[in-house]
Each structure stands twice: as structure tokens, then as C-alpha cells.
């Protein structure tokens, strides 16, 4: 059985032309695959996330980031949760110390 392999690559998309503007998108593609069809089984998981877009306008090119607001907010909430736990543990340890004295 082949071990799962993870591949991460940035893929440039087909340019989108809107009037005088030309948009060049790029996508982050994460692939996890394992097994082999000839060995009896395999699996593949693919996730494609837009990363950025280069906008070519008559007055020059601009780079636009495409943020994943939901994921960023969830990460911040997870960090807040970890901070709450850490501060609480420190406070409890401090209180135990005070109680012993």
C-alpha cells in the first residue's frame, strides 16, 4: 500500500477579459492521494482555493489578494480560545501557589 502523498501547487488560471481589463487568476491546489489502483485501492482528495488575481488595466497592473474571511475569523477565534485556556491555567496555578503559602 502506497503512503499518502501531499502535493501543493499554485496554478495560473485562464485570463478573464472584462472590457479593457484583463484578470489573471491563480489558485492554490492541494492534493492528497494514496494507494494505487493496481494494488487494489486508492483515494484522492483535492482542494482548490483562490489565492490572488492580477488585474491588468490600461494604467498598469495591480495585484489583488482574495482573502478567505471565514477561515481567517475561525483561526482568530481558535487563537482566542487557546489564549483563554492558557491564561486560565496560569491563573489556577497561581491560585494553587497562593493557597499553599
Amino acid at each position: 500500500m502506497q503512503m499518502p502523498v501531499q502535493k501543493i501547487r499554485v496554478v495560473a488560471g485562464t485570463p478573464i477579459v472584462v472590457g479593457e481589463r484583463r484578470l489573471l487568476p491563480s489558485v492554490l491546489v492541494t492534493t492528497v492521494e494514496g494507494g494505487n489502483a493496481s494494488d487494489g485501492g486508492f483515494f484522492r482528495f483535492v482542494k482548490a482555493r483562490p489565492v490572488s488575481m492580477v488585474v491588468e488595466e490600461p494604467d498598469g497592473a495591480r495585484w489583488l489578494e482574495i482573502p478567505n474571511t471565514t477561515e481567517n475569523t475561525l483561526s482568530q477565534m481558535a487563537a482566542a480560545g487557546a489564549a483563554i485556556a492558557l491564561v486560565s491555567v496560569l491563573l489556577m496555578a497561581l491560585l494553587h501557589l497562593v493557597r499553599k503559602r
Binding site: I16, V18, G19, L23, G35, A37, G40, G41, F42, F43, R44, F45, V46, K47, A48, R49, P50, I66, N68
Partner: peptide, 18 residues
């Protein structure tokens, strides 16, 4: 205006035989 929808896509599949 021109609107271009942007989505995050994910898919997976697996198969086995014996």
C-alpha cells in the same frame, strides 16, 4: 458592473477492489 464569483472547491474519492 461585471461580477465574477469566486469559490473554494474540494472533492475526494476512493475506490477499492479485491
Amino acid at each position: 458592473r461585471v461580477l465574477i464569483p469566486v469559490a473554494e472547491i474540494a472533492y475526494g474519492f476512493g475506490a477499492g477492489l479485491g
